[in-house]
């Protein structure tokens, strides 16, 4: 355990030194929260009668941090460490390189949790937000969305052989997920054809789940749960199948 925490300390310091992971993982999501709050916070949501826009989009906004860590942080770090033979070097020590992957999973989880908590704090303090549905169900949904997206991030790391391809693939995945899943721009204001396409994104289903649990709605969650659990299982199986240490 001591090994794990020493690695966590050193690798954590390195992550904090990277401005981009802090910017995309924490500053940007909190910034978007403040912007939306200032512009339309207290307006009624376009489709959910009886809720303000902040209430309706809180579940979506806290996934921005997950998005940044899952589709930038995790795959890019792994691709970089593989390129630099750092993972390979762990094979010739008593510790498995898997431990290094876990260390980075934990760092990124902490980063997205910090981002989510900050968004909650801002929403609550400045815009009078409170979760309507059950907090435990909401937190559980949040964790499911997180691990599900992380497994997809791991899959990108497994399939991309070089840092360059990982970079390209991450951008191709990250930006549509960010803008089309409803994480930043409310899904409800998209025209119908775009909604149909965007529904295929796993994060869209994750946001549907989070929105429903945050508002305490009694909607049918079979589809979102299936998509998230399905992505998680597929992501893990395929990552293990295609993962290369070097």
């Amino acid at each position: 355990m001591k090994k794990f925490f020493t690695l966590l300390k050193v690798e954590g310091k390195l992550s904090l030194r990277c401005i981009d992971s802090i910017f995309f993982g924490v500053c940007m999501p909190v910034g978007i929260m403040i912007l939306i709050g200032l512009i339309v916070g207290q307006n009624p949501a376009p489709t959910d009668a009886g809720y303000t826009l902040i209430q309706s989009s809180f579940g979506a906004l806290i996934t921005v941090g997950i998005c940044a860590t899952a589709f930038m942080g995790i795959p890019l770090t792994i691709a970089d460490y593989r390129d630099k033979k750092i993972l390979k070097h762990f094979f010739v020590t008593p510790v498995s390189p898997t431990m290094l992957l876990w260390v980075h999973a934990v760092i990124n989880m902490l980063l997205s949790l910090v981002s989510a908590l900050l968004i909650y704090a801002v929403a609550r303090t400045f815009f009078g937000y409170e979760i309507i549905g059950g907090k435990l169900a909401f937190f559980g949904s949040y964790l499911l969305v997180m691990v599900s997206m992380y497994s997809l991030g791991l899959l990108i790391a497994s399939l991309c052989r070089t840092v360059k391809t990982a970079n390209v693939v991450c951008s191709i995945v990250y930006f549509p997920m960010l803008f089309l899943s409803g994480a930043t721009i409310p899904f409800e204001i998209f025209p119908q054809p775009l909604q149909n396409v965007a529904s295929f994104l796993p994060l869209t289903q994750g946001i549907a789940l989070l929105k429903s649990t945050s508002l305490g709605l009694e909607t049918n969650l079979f589809l979102p749960l299936m998509v998230l659990v399905g992505s998680l299982v597929m992501g893990i199986i395929l990552s293990i199948r295609f993962f290369r240490w070097e």
Binding site: K3, T6, L14, K85, T93
Partner: peptide
């Protein structure tokens, strides 16, 4: 067993003391 692999490289931003600390933590 100690190993030096050909053309090793390190994490970006890592400092000399930190890479030593990290490697030392792996051994009993």
């Amino acid at each position: 067993v100690g190993v030096q692999l050909q053309s090793s490289s390190y994490q970006g931003n890592i400092r000399v003391g930190e890479v030593c600390e990290e490697i030392a933590a792996l051994y009993q």
